[in-house]
Design a protein around this nucleic acid. Sequence first.
DNA 1: TTAACCCCTGACCCATACGTCAAAGGCAAG
DNA 2: CTTGCCTTTGACGTATGGGTCAGGGGTTAA
Lengths: 146, 146
Amino acid sequence: MRIGDAAAAAGTTPRALRFYEQNGLLPPPRRSVTGQRQYGPRDVARVRVIRELLSLGLTVADLRDCADRLDLLEEDTLPPYGAPGPCAKPTGVAQRRIAALNEEIARLARLRDQLAARVGPGEASSPETVGSIVARTHAGDLPSRG
Amino acid sequence: MRIGDAAAAAGTTPRALRFYEQNGLLPPPRRSVTGQRQYGPRDVARVRVIRELLSLGLTVADLRDCADRLDLLEEDTLPPYGAPGPCAKPTGVAQRRIAALNEEIARLARLRDQLAARVGPGEASSPETVGSIVARTHAGDLPSRG
DNA sequence: TTAACCCCTGACCCATACGTCAAAGGCAAG
DNA sequence: CTTGCCTTTGACGTATGGGTCAGGGGTTAA
């Protein structure tokens, strides 16, 4: 299977596959005599896993950090959830991501509330004028750099 | 006042002031004979406003779009909140930002919930193994490109 | 006068996950 | 053989808000 077919099978593009390879998420595949990448179904499966984890908010750096454990997909012996196995080394990547998400959600909520407090009761009464935001903002305290 | 002092007074750096000027948030100040920027207290006040609005999540592009209304700060006649004045033209920038924040919050909450669903009840029992996430992820449905 | 610090412009750097382009060569069909 | 799509690598672009550097010149106090 050449890169275009593998990418289509995984629901993405050749560019993405080369990107994953460059970033250590996908092992360098065999090459044809003329240098073209050759993929099998296991590579496609791995790409699908990568894409799902990315869609859940894990980053390329996160996945690179545990790329060796992604390899487990290519074996038939996956340990059951929670069982100490060859991948028992805890990484906490998911927990950390959840905590980061909660922090980000709280931060955005604070921002929203501050902004809403400036533009009024937030009943969406009438479109806000930037001028009036600025007016209320004039004497506001600012976070200083540090 | 030279740029370093103005920046310090506004709680930021010379680079930021030049950046605001380049992006149309700050009017080009007078220059000394030798080309150095000269600022006054009104410039400092304007920078503080810019920084507060940015800290509330408005973007440089947002502020550039209404840079003419930021000019009102430099006059003493600010219309009261809600009153139609020289800046009566409604922009809705703040409302749009609040709506965008709400969407973003909802999106992050969905991501967090999906991730939590994969790593278990989320009681933060023990650090999650990436291997087990991958195991549960193996057959997951993926968003395809389109 | 000279040290020490400040300012000028232009340009590249950060992280994210690729898209897009360019030049050159591979592969299968007519 | 030619046509046309596919692949290769490398490099630049995207949006954000500046940080940092380089090379040159201003400013001020000792």
